[in-house]
Design a protein around this nucleic acid. Structure first.
Length: 282
DNA sequence: ACAGGCTCCTGCAGGC
DNA sequence: TGCCTGCAGGAGCCTG
């Protein structure tokens, strides 16, 4: 499931391969109900525009789109007129392919580019979302929560102050921290030595500091390794990540803790499978 | 206001 | 062997 590191990896890959390219045509499947912007409006709004930049905000991939791009200026010098926002949900993929690449089942969007490439959105479970914003009318996209890679300690502590829910549930709340999902919540809590069920508002300053540090380290290392390939995650070029080899608790139920050999336990918290070491996490 | 539960959807694992 | 059931989860929505 794509979380911050996977989305960051995909956004970087797509940026490298489509920056400056122009959208010639946009096709959408009939499974359009979940899309935030109706497909007809997306097709119309995308055609003719060029990619100025592609970046990550929370778990969203934001494509900054400019005018046709025939004025000779570099992409970064042109002002975005629209944003195409891609949320991958559980099973979404954004792939840069050739037109000859076989179209796999559950392909919901195909953007033909002037270079001859295609940008494809594939999503079997259809939890993903596509949105087109016209920046001349709509506001620029912003994640509701803070970025766990850049947040400072005092701001981090304020997020959880007075909150009675479990720290694991708080980490998954995108309006607090944007980008953390089930894998990296479990892994970060392990590295910080904190039990997932602990009440968020009752964590000590020292624990909050450890948690912020653990989030930063785990997410940064996962980005360096190209994300975690559980189920069948791949980046924009179809390449798998390697961070799943570094997982200490996620999907390791019953296996010995890498630090103390105690079997990893699994509980259900906030409706999610939650993995922890009963010895290392207090 | 806030917390928790339900829902969407498909692929896969496990049981009989 | 093959079918069927249940489970996985991000986030929006509803309820308590």
């Amino acid at each position: 499931m794509p979380e911050l590191p996977e989305v960051e990896t995909i956004a970087r890959g797509v940026h490298e391969r489509v920056r400056g390219d122009q959208i010639v045509d946009a096709w959408f499947s009939r499974h359009s109900e979940p899309f935030k912007t109706p497909p007809a409006r997306q097709s119309k709004g995308l055609a003719g525009r060029s990619f100025l930049a592609v970046h990550r905000t929370g778990k969203h991939i934001v494509c900054e789109l400019g005018p046709s791009g025939r004025d000779g200026r570099a992409p970064e010098e042109r002002k975005p007129e629209a944003q195409w926002i891609v949320h991958l949900g559980m099973s979404g993929r954004l792939l840069v392919t050739t037109p000859e690449t076989p179209v796999v089942p559950h392909t919901h969007a195909r953007l033909s580019l002037a270079s001859g490439r295609e940008l494809r959105f594939v999503d079997p479970r259809r939890f993903g979302r596509l949105e087109l914003r016209d920046l001349r009318k709509d506001e620029s996209f912003g994640a509701p929560g803070a970025d766990p890679l850049t947040i400072g300690l005092s701001e981090f502590a304020v997020l959880f102050r007075g909150r009675k829910l479990a720290i694991k549930a708080a980490l998954l709340n995108q309006s607090l921290l944007a980008g953390v999902g089930n894998i990296y919540a479990d892994e970060s809590l392990f590295h910080a030595g904190i039990r997932p069920r602990r009440v968020a508002g009752r964590l000590t300053r020292a624990e909050l500091e450890r948690l912020r540090g653990a989030l930063h380290r785990v997410l940064s290392q996962a980005i360096r390794l190209g994300g975690s390939s559980v189920s069948d995650y791949v980046d924009a070029n179809g390449v798998r990540g390697f961070f799943q080899l570094e997982h200490c608790v996620y999907l390791r139920t019953g296996k010995p803790c890498r630090q103390c050999q105690t079997p990893i336990r699994r509980i259900v918290l906030a409706g999610r499978g939650t993995h922890f070491c009963p010895h290392c996490q207090q």
